[in-house]
């Protein structure tokens, strides 16, 4: 019984210990992709131009 409770507690804490880093990673990843692929900044657009076309991001 105690062992079960410990296992459940461990499962819960490991779920949280995965969810938070995963959410941070997704936010960071989306930020990078939007920054290079979708930013309307002229300089970024020019630098990333060929990359955007190749990845078929909407460009221009």
């Amino acid at each position: 019984m105690t062992r079960n409770a410990t296992l459940i507690a461990q499962a819960k804490s490991s779920r949280a210990s995965i969810a938070v880093p995963a959410a941070v990673a997704i936010l960071f990843g989306v930020f990078l992709v939007l920054g290079t692929g979708f930013s309307h900044s002229d300089t970024i657009h020019n630098a990333a131009h060929d990359s955007r076309h190749s990845f078929a991001f909407p460009c221009h």
Partner: peptide, 12 residues
């Protein structure tokens, strides 16, 4: 640009 985009996709 490709490396930054690839790292972004890889993070997700």
């Amino acid at each position: 640009a490709n490396v930054l985009t690839a790292i972004g996709f890889a993070l997700v």
